[in-house]
Design a protein around this nucleic acid. Structure first.
Lengths: 174, 174
DNA sequence: CAGAACATGTAACCGGTTACATGATTTT
DNA sequence: AAAATCATGTAACCGGTTACATGTTCTG
């Protein structure tokens, strides 16, 4: 279900797009919350068309098919966003690693935590550079600025946790 | 692969446990990063035994089978934790919702964002109460305090983002 | 004209969810 | 004695990943 919503969301936000365009977004900005490959995207777009939530509005060069969200698609998206089902089904491999790292003996855990902190610090820096290029929206958006902001905050939280947890574990050792 | 690691991690951290015990942990603390049902856990424990990463050390009442991690299991876990494959395959339904919410017209988005902020505020409060009951470890742990701390930080980040994004969108409307 | 990037698709497989199924022990 | 909780399992299905497969257009 969520892939379908993500596709409708992208079509609503970014305007008419091809599967190829969407696949790039799923590798880029969206990948922090929901990744998808073209092998999953193309069949789903076809289903979206069958269900009349999107239509092919242009057949461009190289077999390019441009999809546009329909009114039915918009209302399906809106109603999904409105139903705040608090079901937070999260699946994060790096989260799992964080969860388990402090279980190692401190001598092992501390360097690994520092490594994670550095990794997230680098990602934060990268995303902040990305943010510099886009200014905060002054008109009711349709751009990814807010999502980027959220990504930065989350990565920052992890970075700080990893760093402070390493400090704390180190403190215990002495 | 990750389910296997999660199980080994739980066995390493919490000591010998049954599938039933583990299932409860996957519904509780661990569920913030990785959820699993008993229907997936039991078969995986059997595989763990076949691969000699864990052994059944006690057959209790009601068919209860207590698994203990083996040395091979520990080293499998350790080597997984040491390989910092930065592959962050994340899959977060609520993250997707956050990503898409600001795409709605502000009149709709703002109340929904406030709602999300309230929801996360409540969760933060709940986790903080939980943290009150466990004091920060003074010995090299094996308890879930750090994981709880991380959970709180992440939820706080989302709460603040939702709240500030709502403010910002509201500001644009005027 | 060769290689990169564009562009869409299918198939086999694996991991995970839902639902079905069963039985033992404890609590009320 | 009934209901709740403990405890483990299986099977059908669905969503997602990896790999295979094909053809077009642009760039150097």
């Amino acid at each position: 279900m969520s892939l379908r919503i993500a596709l409708l969301g992208m079509l609503a936000a970014g305007g008419p797009s091809s599967g190829y365009d969407l696949a790039k977004q799923f590798e880029g900005s969206l990948s922090h919350v929901w990744a998808a490959r073209h092998s999953q995207i193309y069949p789903e777009l076809n289903k979206l068309e069958v269900d009349e939530l999107a239509t092919v509005t242009d057949d461009g060069a190289r077999g390019r098919k441009v999809y546009t969200i329909t009114d039915a698609g918009r209302s399906a998206l809106d109603s999904w966003l409105r139903t705040t089902e608090a079901r937070q089904r999260v699946r994060s491999e790096s989260g799992l690693r964080m969860f388990l790292l402090p279980l190692l003996p401190p001598g092992e855990a501390v360097p690994l935590l520092r490594q994670e902190a550095a990794l997230y610090a680098a990602q934060v820096a990268e995303l902040e550079a990305e943010r510099e290029r886009h200014s905060p929206p002054t008109k009711p958006g349709r751009n990814g600025w807010y999502a980027l902001d959220l990504g930065i905050r989350q990565m920052t939280a992890i970075r700080d946790w990893a760093s402070e947890t390493a400090d704390h574990l180190e403190g215990l050792g002495k």
